[in-house]
Nucleic acid binder design. Structure first.
Ligand SMILES: [Zn+2]
Ligand SMILES: [Zn+2]
Ligand SMILES: [Zn+2]
Ligand SMILES: [Zn+2]
Lengths: 129, 129
DNA sequence: GATTAAATGGGAATGATTGTCAATAAGCCT
DNA sequence: AGGCTTATTGACAATCATTCCCATTTAATC
């Protein structure tokens, strides 16, 4: 397991993530961090976000353009309902879905079954604009 | 609407897709096409795959590394159960899931609701190796 | 304060994807 | 068949997110 030193860079990145409601790309996080006076390297932001994701401290999704996006999330397995217009991201859970997905795998002889699911749409606020 | 000329390049790309069971990246398709003697430009492969995807002639998914992958698929909305080891891709449909996903959106005031779902695991053949 | 390995930064390298535009050729007309 | 028009191609440049590299910095411990 990698040693985890509490560097000011890591603090700043965590802080930036905390200030954001929705998913942000590594580049956006980098820009946010450097707005607050700090001057943190892009490599450092990428490294830390990757580590935080592997440690399950942040959620990561791959956007439609292939860009990775990060967000602080509640613990445990869940999915998201996101507005494609404003980025609003709502956490979703569905036990029936979880069971169904696993069963589909089992029925086909698969093991180590996992899944990804994202629901998208236009939120109420954006629709009334 | 764009005119669709039946070029030999387009035929070759379609042929390469037809010969493949699983999802392949644009670069892989390009390599496949050029194996068969033809010499087709990489740009052409990208252009055609994009067009074919927009015309719903092929499925496209974004891999974990952000790379786009393409495959000829049956018509209609469906998902995939893919083996992370050998790439085997099985088409999946689930009416209950479709209804549930849409309802989740509706319950949260969303419109123009869509979703993506991918199930992954290790297939039986790969497990017994 | 001294020590030491983890962590940083910044600039280069990678690699997929897109853009450019002159040259080519599919489909159509005669 | 030959010619015309314009969609399409292809070689290369350009873009852009992400990863690499490595000398320098610094958090943590004593
Ligand atoms: Zn919205
Ligand atoms: Zn789930
Ligand atoms: Zn499919
Ligand atoms: Zn579906």
């Amino acid at each position: 397991m990698a040693t985890q030193r509490l560097t000011k860079q890591r603090k700043a990145i965590t802080e930036a993530l905390r200030s954001q409601e929705n998913f942000k790309s590594a580049q956006e996080i980098h820009a946010l961090v450097n707005l607050n006076g700090e001057t943190i390297g892009l490599s450092t932001v990428y490294r830390n976000l990757t580590e935080m994701f592997e440690a399950r401290d942040v959620d990561m999704i791959i956007g439609t353009d292939g860009e990775s996006q990060y967000r602080l999330c509640s613990n445990g397995h869940h999915h998201h309902l996101t507005c494609t217009n404003c980025g609003l991201a709502i956490e979703i859970t569905g036990e029936a879905l979880e069971v169904w997905a696993k069963q589909v795998g089992i029925d086909n002889g698969f093991t180590e079954i996992a899944h990804t699911l994202e629901i998208t749409g236009i939120c109420r606020a954006c629709k009334n604009t």
